[in-house]
Design a protein around this nucleic acid. Structure first.
Lengths: 141, 141
DNA sequence: CAGTATCCGACCTGATACTG
DNA sequence: CAGTATCAGGTCGGATACTG
C-alpha cells in the first residue's frame, strides 16, 4: 500500500495522535494550496526579499494577503522575519531550512502535476463535454 | 535551486504555459488540501467503495460534500464512477491509476509533514506565546 | 517602508429536506 | 441507495484608507 497515512485513517476510532497528524497534514496541504503561499515561497527561493520587493514579485497580491501569508509561514517556522530598526523600516523575509525542506517536498508534487498536466486537462475537457452533452444527447442512450 | 516551478514564476511576464502550469499546480494542491479530498482518497486506497460505504468511512462528511468531492475527483480522472443499473441503484467509486499515482506523490508530502510535525507545532507554540507575551512583556524590551 | 483596520461581496460548508 | 435542492452562517479575498 501507498499510504503513509496509515491504514484506515478515515475510520472512526483511529488513534488520537494519528488524527492529529492527519489534521496537520491537511493543514499544511491547505496552506500550500491556498491562493498565495506557493507563489510567495517560490519568490523567496532565490533569496531573502523585503516586503515591498515581495509585493512586486508576487504579481496581484494585496498587502493584506501578503502580510497574512507571511505571518502564517513565519508562524510555522518556514520563513524568518528580520526587522532592522531603521528609518524607514526595513524587514527582510527569508526561507528557513525547514522552509526549503518543505519546498523540496512540495516540488515533488509540483513535478507530478507538471508531468500529468495533459492527462488532467484532457480528463476535465472530456468530463465537461460529457456533462454538457447529456443535456442534448445523453451518452449510452 | 529546488524549483521545478522554474525561476521567477512569480515575476510578471512569465511564459503563458508556465503560468498555466502554476495555476494547475495550485488547483491540484488546493483540491488535495481541501477538507475532504485527502480523507476520501485514503478511504478509496484499499479498494473500490460504494457511496454509502464511503459516507461511513469518511467520518463527518455530509452527502453533499462527499458527492461534490467525488465529482471533482472524477472530473480530474483520479476516480472512476461506475453505476450499475439496478434497483436499488449501486454506484462504485475507485481510484484510477492516475489517482494512485497522485496519491503516491502526495504521500511524499504527507511523510514530510509527519517527519517534521514536532518542529511545526513547536514553532507555532513559540510564535503564539511570543505574540501573547508581547502584550504583557515585549521581547527584547 | 511595512504594515494594520475596515468594509463588503463571493464563495464554501453544513444542515435539512426532498427525489429517481 | 445515491444523490440533488435550498437555505443560513462563516470564511476568504480584494479594495480602500490609515499609521508607526
Amino acid at each position: 500500500m501507498t499510504s503513509s497515512l496509515g491504514a484506515g485513517l478515515a475510520r472512526r476510532g483511529v488513534a488520537p495522535d494519528c488524527v492529529q497528524t492527519i489534521e496537520l497534514v491537511r493543514d499544511v496541504l491547505a496552506r500550500v494550496g491556498d491562493k498565495w503561499t506557493l507563489l510567495t515561497i517560490t519568490a523567496l527561493t532565490p533569496g531573502p526579499l523585503r516586503f515591498t520587493a515581495l509585493h512586486e514579485h508576487v504579481a496581484g497580491i494585496s498587502q493584506r494577503m501578503l502580510s497574512q501569508t507571511l505571518r502564517a509561514l513565519t508562524r510555522d517556522g518556514l520563513v524568518t522575519r528580520s526587522a532592522y530598526p531603521q528609518v524607514p523600516p526595513r524587514v527582510e523575509y527569508a526561507l528557513t531550512p525547514l522552509g526549503r525542506s518543505m519546498s523540496e517536498a512540495v516540488d515533488e508534487l509540483v513535478r507530478w502535476v507538471r508531468d500529468h498536466q495533459r492527462d488532467i486537462t484532457r480528463n476535465r475537457d472530456e468530463f465537461d463535454q460529457a456533462s454538457t452533452a447529456k443535456t442534448t444527447n445523453p451518452p449510452y442512450a
